[in-house]
Design a protein around this nucleic acid. Structure first.
Lengths: 144, 144
DNA sequence: GTTGGTGCAAATGATTTGCAAAAGG
DNA sequence: CCTTTTGCAAATCATTTGCACCAAC
């Protein structure tokens, strides 16, 4: 599978060893197409490789983060969420009332990043932003 | 003290009872002029009222949040930080490398809030935003 | 063979919760 | 009085860590 080869090469080049656990965690994230909690990643990996430990998932995800292959986000829930990040930068609008989430295109934040870089020399990490608030439906519902 | 009266009135109007613990937590936040952790609030309150419990601090801060008198932010540290929010909306640039923090004026985020409201009907809660990244000094240091 | 990685089990530590006693209105 | 609030102590629960064994290279 091309994906696994690619991941394996990236790991090796960075000086990390290639293990089935690491490939499976990466694969789970890559193909999920959404945010996964550590427990969800473990569940997914265990369908193939039943004895992986949660601590291995955390350790692997930490490594993927350093390699910029994955992002970690606190979406306000009980646990951290992980996502494959090789794709386009994107962001989320999270409704504090109904917990629903919608995707926000990166161009909404591009200008902010530029301004902050220009004015403060601050290189903002805006790969993955969570904006909390109240969504349209909940606002309309609240009027009742 | 005028501040305490004001807080007391707000609580009463909202149907909450007024207790010394609540007034002291509010006062600690109001006069700190910076972010405080739950433990720091407790320390501050205990200089006046030694027997307050951490759980009371958490419960009170939760109430102040509902009343929009305080904000809660995860600044990437081990614990949540609380701040009095009656003042101007403002934001922070947090350096992932040196952990230093600088204040970002609200106007940088105003436009974003407008756009998101216009395009999605989403009422973004941008009272207090944390933007992570690398500050100028650390970027220059890294070049070495 | 070395070194780094894994599973297991136990620790961590901020936040939450149950409950009886105390205090607000 | 009748609730709400508090302090205390215990629970929670995601994440981290120590360590002995195992697997990459």
């Amino acid at each position: 599978m091309a994906c696994e080869q690619e991941t394996a090469n990236t790991l090796r080049e960075a000086g990390f060893r290639v293990t089935p656990q690491r490939l499976l965690v990466a694969s789970a994230l890559r193909h999920a197409g959404r945010h996964l909690s550590a427990a969800e990643i473990a569940d997914e990996v265990r369908t193939v490789y039943p004895m992986v430990d949660l601590s291995t998932v955390y350790r692997t995800v930490e490594m993927l983060k350093r390699l910029q292959l994955a992002t970690v986000t606190d979406m306000g829930g009980d646990d951290l969420l992980f996502e494959w990040s090789a794709g386009e930068a994107h962001h989320h609008l999270i409704c504090s009332t109904c917990r629903r989430m919608q995707v926000l295109d990166h161009r909404y934040l591009e200008r902010l990043a530029e301004e902050v870089g220009r004015d403060f020399g601050f290189q903002a990490d805006l790969q993955h932003f969570a904006i909390f608030g109240v969504c349209q439906e909940c606002r309309e519902g609240a009027k009742t």
